[in-house]
């Protein structure tokens, strides 16, 4: 816990890293100054893109003592404002799951290559990033904690499967290799509370370590202070639970 007489400093900058298929993509990387060792965090951005909120979140995790990287999952769609690039990706039906998992794995390996790492890496994502984070921690070994914030499409109907999203992430639950914290809103339409309950039942069935919280009077994206979806009380509690969970599993 930060005290006012403590020294604090961080380095935050855009870097490049190898992602899926060895493609070099850009990423935003923020870490506390000093030799560490620090736990690592991979942040997977949401459908609206690799935007300012994710830069701020990356610095927030660094402020809490994590070497944190947020890869640009939309790098291959070209460059422009985050909204314009995200609109292009949306028109294409999103990015392929395999590519997102490959980029998350690349980010995790980048952190593991650093001499300042304490040997532990977590993954956090919101919205489609929560879904991608869940997929990544299930399909790739090397993550020690997963935070899924309202990841829609973890439970999918057969009709919703596409070439980009060929398998519902819930199908990989048995392979999840780390504890999961899930934060959800009761009024969310994706995931609905029913879908969250199905996900929870699957985790229970496979004896996974999980902690799910369903917030009343909150919908999709209740952390986003720049949107109408923001719910102050629930967001404060959600961040508190996030850092308590990570402290437990990554320190």
């Amino acid at each position: 816990m930060y005290q006012t007489n403590m020294y604090e400093g961080m380095l935050a900058e855009t870097i490049t890293m190898p992602g899926a298929n060895g493609d070099v993509i850009n990423a935003y990387f923020a870490r506390p100054l000093g030799a560490g060792p620090f736990p690592g965090m991979v942040l997977i951005h949401h459908m609206p893109g690799w935007d300012e909120w994710y830069r701020e979140a990356t610095r927030k995790f660094a402020h809490h003592g994590y070497a944190t990287i947020s890869p640009n999952l939309y790098f291959r769609a070209g460059h422009g404002t985050p909204e314009d690039v995200a609109a292009k990706v949306r028109a294409a039906g999103g990015i392929p799951d395999d590519q997102a998992v490959g980029d998350a794995e690349g980010a995790m390996k980048f952190l593991r290559s650093l001499p300042i790492l304490n040997g532990k890496v977590g993954i956090f994502g919101t919205c489609s990033g929560g879904r991608h984070a869940t997929l990544s921690a299930s399909r790739v070994k090397g993550f020690d904690a997963l935070v899924d914030c309202w990841g829609g499409g973890v439970v999918m109907a057969q009709a919703d499967l596409t070439p980009n999203r060929p398998v519902a992430p819930i199908e990989y639950t048995k392979d999840l290799s780390c504890p999961i914290l899930g934060l959800f809103g009761e009024e969310d339409k994706s995931p609905t509370p029913e879908q969250v309950a199905l996900h929870e039942a699957e985790l229970k069935k496979h004896n996974k370590v999980y902690e799910f919280h369903m917030y009343p009077k909150a919908g999709h994206g209740f952390f986003y202070y720049d949107r109408a979806a923001y719910r102050q009380e629930q967001a404060i509690d959600g961040w508190k639970k996030t850092f308590a969970f990570l402290e437990k599993h990554l320190l």
Partner: peptide, 8 residues
Amino acid sequence: QGPGARVA
């Protein structure tokens, strides 16, 4: 013309 050629 790239992602910026967009009217939303």
